[in-house]
Every structure is written in structure tokens, then in C-alpha cells.
């Protein structure tokens, strides 16, 4: 547990387009934000699922890619100095005695804030579990979806499955310290960087590892300890000794720990009102794809609208005595100063 707590006005869970725009709307009201995201960069689904794909329904932009939209939003929120925490998942949310909220992420960092905004889209991106029978029995002991400590793989019989950069990078990193290494991929083409593929092929030529063209079929072992994996190949089936398995099948979205925060859910989505987009717990708001209300449309533009209304309600919680005068960025000198466009 980290000794240093971060105190801020608002913690935003999720740095996708809607979480980013929330920084803008909250910033205009002088609220300071910290954002957490499970990915290693901002943009959420826009960055992870379709960075290059055109989006046609952002008002004012006949066409814009997910990456361009993300870049523009980052530029738009820069004047408000949001602080980003990537590769983090919020694991718990509790209300403190002083009425503020305390969130803790998966690295033990605590955040204390007056308002929580859940803008987590489809949930958190988590590694896909291949549908191999009994794989869950070995997770955390013999099957891993990421390498946290390389030492866990020393002198082990390691099998890596996949053809992308994660698979190939770990082949190259783990090769020097394992007892045996097998890469399994369904085809002879790789998505990974050609230079990594070239280095892998050199290792194969030197007899330091094997490449098997095929797909995982069955796991063998007991009590969480894997002993071998059967692989279906063009020639039939091969049983390969394996004590550590690393499957890399990309990411999928799961609601994750949000489900345990005591918020009223509606079919895995957070139920909110349509005035403030507040959840069943006062002070915890949900905006974007993760919320539900009658007539909800999962559109980025709907999330933007929700962010604006949420911000007004958040301000009233944080500064209950301050009279809120609604202002436009086009004409308000005060807002323009905040945006850094007027001195």
C-alpha cells in the first residue's frame, strides 16, 4: 500500500473520449481531475479498437479517426492540467466518514476525492481467456496473461501462444532464462514486428527454442500445476511438456471491479438519472457507454452531453454555497482565461 494518498476534486475512471471531455467540463468549473485507465494510453476504445477507423457522427467533424479525436480532446483539456495514471485498474471504492470517497488502484495507490466519475465504457480491457478446457484451474499458477516477474519463468518449460508483438517480445525476453521454449501460432505469418520474427527464427535455427504451427487443444496437469499441452498441428496432434503457459489472444472488455462498488446496475450497466447522470450512490456519477437510462444511446456525443450535465452537479457537491452562473466559452472572459486564450 502506497503511503502517499492523492487528494483531488474528482477522480475519473476511464480515459476514453467521454472521460477526457469530462475533464474539460469540470475544468471550466475549476475542478481538478485525476484520470485512471487500464490501458497504457488515453483514448479508450477509440485508441484500442479503432485508432485508424473513421468516425462519422461526431458533430462538426464529417469524418475523424479515433486517434485524431483522442489527440484533439487531449489538446482541448490540456489547459486544465489533468493528471493521468495509466495501466491502473481501480479495485475498490469506499465512502469515508468525512463524506469523501477513497479509491484504491491495483498498485495500491489511494485517491481521495469529493466526486467520482465512472467513464469506463464497456468496462476494463482484460486479456482474453482461450476456450481451452480447464484453463481457469491453472491461472495464476501455471497460466499467465502477462509477465509481471520474469523470475517466475526461470528454468521452466514455457509455451507462448500468439503471433503479435506481446507474444514475440516475450519469446525474445524469456528465451535466455527458461529451460525450454515453444512458440505456438496458427499460421506462418506474424503480426509482430518483422525484426522480432527474424530474431525468433534465428533462435529456432540455433536450436534454442521451437516454433510449432498449430492451435492449443488440451491442457494436462493437476492441482494448478501444468505438465503438458496438446497442440493440434497439420500433421495431427503433439503433446509438449509445459510448466508455464502464456496465451496472447488480445483483449476483451469486462465490467470488472465496478460491479462490486454497490452501485445499482441494470444489465451490467450503471443506472443513472438523466438530470445529473448520478448513480444510486450520491457523488458517484456514470457517463458514456457504461451508464443506462431510458432511451440511452451508446454514442460518443451522448457521453459528451452527459459530461456537461454531470459537471454542473459535481460542482454543486464540491462548492455547495457558490452560485453557479452558466457561461459560454465564446463570450465569457473568465472561461477564456481558464482556457488560456485570454490574459
Amino acid at each position: 500500500m502506497s503511503a502517499h494518498e492523492i487528494e483531488t476534486d474528482v477522480v475519473i475512471v476511464g480515459a476514453g473520449p467521454v472521460g477526457l471531455f469530462a475533464v474539460f467540463e469540470l475544468g471550466l468549473l475549476d475542478l481538478k481531475c485525476h484520470l485512471l485507465d487500464i490501458l497504457d494510453r488515453p483514448g479508450g476504445q477509440c485508441a484500442e479498437l479503432y485508432p485508424e477507423k473513421p468516425i462519422y457522427d461526431i458533430p462538426g467533424f464529417p469524418v475523424i479517426t479515433g486517434q485524431e479525436l483522442t489527440d484533439n480532446l487531449l489538446k482541448q483539456v490540456a489547459p486544465f492540467g489533468p493528471e493521468f495514471h495509466y495501466n491502473r485498474m481501480v479495485v475498490s471504492l469506499e465512502k469515508q466518514e468525512d463524506g469523501r470517497f477513497r479509491l484504491v488502484d491495483d498498485e495500491g495507490q489511494a485517491y481521495v476525492c469529493s466526486v467520482v466519475v465512472v467513464a469506463a465504457g464497456g468496462g476494463s480491457f482484460q486479456p482474453k481467456r482461450p476456450p481451452v478446457p480447464d484453463i481457469a484451474d491453472y491461472e495464476g499458477t501455471s497460466v499467465f496473461y502477462a509477465v509481471r516477474r520474469m523470475e517466475d519463468f526461470r528454468d521452466q518449460d514455457v509455451m507462448i501462444v500468439g503471433g503479435g508483438d506481446s507474444a514475440l517480445d516475450w519469446v525474445l525476453n524469456l528465451a535466455p532464462l527458461v529451460r525450454s521454449l515453444t512458440l505456438v501460432h496458427r499460421r506462418d505469418n506474424f503480426r509482430a514486428a518483422p525484426v522480432s520474427v527474424g530474431r525468433m527464427k534465428e533462435l529456432v535455427a540455433q536450436g534454442k527454442m521451437r516454433f510449432v504451427l498449430g492451435q492449443m487443444k488440451e491442457l494436462h496437469g493437476a492441482d494448478g500445476q501444468l505438465t503438458s499441452v496438446s497442440v493440434r498441428t497439420a500433421g495431427g496432434e503433439e503433446n509438449i511438456p509445459v510448466t508455464r503457459l502464456l496465451p496472447f489472444f488480445g483483449l476483451t472488455m469486462k465490467l470488472g471491479p465496478v460491479a462490486d462498488w454497490g452501485l445499482e446496475l441494470n444489465d451490467n450497466l450503471i443506472a443513472v438519472d438523466t438530470e445529473k447522470f448520478e448513480s444510486s450512490v450520491p457523488g458517484v456519477f456514470a457517463i458514456g457507454d457504461i451508464n443506462h437510462y431510458p432511451g440511452k444511446l451508446k454514442l460518443i456525443l451522448s457521453g459528451f452531453h452527459e459530461a456537461a450535465l454531470m459537471a454542473q452537479a459535481a460542482k454543486k457537491i464540491i462548492s455547495p454555497d457558490e452560485r453557479l452562473v452558466f457561461q459560454y466559452t465564446t463570450s465569457s472572459t473568465r472561461l477564456q482565461r481558464k482556457l488560456g486564450v485570454k490574459k
Partner: peptide, 8 residues
Amino acid sequence: MLDFAFEV
């Protein structure tokens, strides 16, 4: 993308 599918 089919690399991410199962039983290809």
C-alpha cells in the same frame, strides 16, 4: 484479427 479467434 483471426489470430484472436479460437478454433480457426
